[in-house]
Simulated assay, not measured.
Amino acid sequence: MNLLESFYTAIEGIWANKMRSGLTMLGIIIGITSVIAVTTLGEGGQKAINQEMEKFGQFTFNVYTNWESKEEFSSDDLTVEDAEVLSKISPAIDYIVPYNSSTIEMKGPKKEERVNLTATTPDYFAMQKTLKVAKGRFFNKTDDQEQRAVIVLEEALGSKLFGQINPIGQRVRWGNNSLVVIGTYTEEKIKFDMGSQSFGAIVPIEYYLSLQEEPYVNMFMGKAKDKASIQPAMQQTTRYLERKHQKKDHYMARSMQESIDQFNQLTGTLTLIFSIIAGISLVVGGVGVMNIMLVSVTERTREIGIRKALGARRQDILIQFLIESVIVCLIGGFIGVLFGLGIAALISHFANLPPLLSWNSVMIAFAFSSAIGIFFGLYPANKAAKLDPIEALRYE
C-alpha cells in the first residue's frame, strides 16, 4: 500500500464517522483557536505598538532628577540655561528642551475645558514631527525670551473654546492669567489611542516659570542624532549636569528604546503564559484523538486482519492509522487557525488596533497539529500494526 492509497483510506475512515471525527477535532480546534488568538494579538499587537512608539519617539530620551539621590534637591537642579548649553556642546544631541506639564482649567468665550498644558521652548516644535500648524504660528525664541503671554492651542480645543470664531488673536484665561492665542496645531495621534478626550496647549517656558514663586523645570526632553547616539547623548547630559551642579548620581536618563524593550519583555512574558494555558487544551484534544483512534482500531480489527491476510505489511497498517490521526488534527488545526484569526481580528477592531497577523503563530499551530497527530496517534497505530492477522479475523 503506497502513501496515496493510505491517504485515501484514511479519508474514507474519517468520512465514514463524520460525527465522531468532528467531536474528536473539537478539542484541537479549541486549543488552536486559543493559541492563535493569544499569539497573534501578542506578537502582532506588540509589533504594531512598537512601530507607533518608534514613530512618535524615535531616538528620544528624558532626563530628570533621581529621587533616590542622597544629594539635596533644589529648584535649579534643571534649568533652561542647562538645556541651551547641552544643545550646543554635545555632538550626539539633535535637540534638548526643558519641559514642564500640568493640568489646568482654561476658559474661552464659549466654555471652559480641562487642558493638558505644556511649557517648553520653540525647539520642541522642531523635535516633535507629529505637530503641524493648523492656523497662525508657533511661538519663537523672541516670544520665549521676552516672556510673552502667548499660547498655541490644539485645533480641537480652539473649536471648543471659541466655536465658529477664529481663535487667532483672541484671549483665553487660566486662573488670573490672560494669554493671546497665536496659533493652533494638529497632532498625529497614536493609532491605538483609546479615545482620550483631553486637549493640549503649549506656552513659552520662560513665561510659565515667571508665574511661579519658586520656578523649576520638571525634566528635559532630548532627541539624539541617530540610534547609535542615544546612549552617548544620555551619558553626556547626566555627566554635564552632575559636573555643573556638583551633585553625584543626582540625575537619571531614560530613552524611549528602553521603554519599548521593557514593554516587549512584559508582553512577551504575558503572551507566553497565556499560550501555555491555551496549549493545555491542545494536550487534552490530543488525548481525545488517541482515545478515538483506539476505538477505531477496535472497531476495525477484522478489517486490519483482512488487510494483513491479503499481504499488508505492519508498516502499511501503522502508516494508515497514523495518517488518519494526523489528518484529523490538521483539519482541526486549519479550522482553529481560521477561528483564531477571526477572533483576533474582531478584538483588534473593537480595541482600535491595526489589523494584526502573526504568520509565526500560524506555522506553529500547524506544526503543533501535526505533532499532536503523530504523538497521540502513534500508540493506536502501533497497536493496530501489531495485531495478529488470525486473531483479528476471529474478532467479532
Rank of each mutant, 00 (worst) to 15 (best):
P355C: 07
A381S: 10
E71L: 00
V297C: 02
A312I: 07
S198V: 15
L23K: 13
R239E: 15
K70C: 09
D144E: 08
I28C: 03
H349A: 12
A48K: 14
N264F: 00
L78M: 09
L356D: 08
T39E: 12
T186V: 07
A381G: 06
R307N: 05
F339A: 03
E84K: 14
L330S: 12
N2K: 07
E213L: 10
K160F: 02
F162V: 05
G31A: 02
T103L: 14
A392V: 05
Y216R: 14
I319Q: 05
I104W: 11
K132L: 04
K110H: 08
G57W: 00
G222R: 02
P380C: 05
A92C: 13
S369H: 06
I168K: 11
S196A: 15
A253Y: 00
T24E: 09
E303C: 12
I374A: 10
P355K: 10
G108Y: 01
N116Y: 14
G13S: 13
K383R: 15
G195C: 02
A344D: 03
S34M: 09
I343W: 05
V150Y: 01
E324C: 10
P91T: 14
N140L: 07
A126R: 11
L357P: 07
K88C: 11
V181Y: 03
E71C: 07
E206D: 15
Q320I: 02
T269E: 10
A224D: 00
D123L: 00
L272K: 15
G22R: 11
P355W: 08
L353R: 05
I317G: 05
E391N: 15
T65R: 14
I343Y: 04
R137K: 14
A92F: 13
Y124I: 12
A92Q: 11
E71G: 09
Y208W: 12
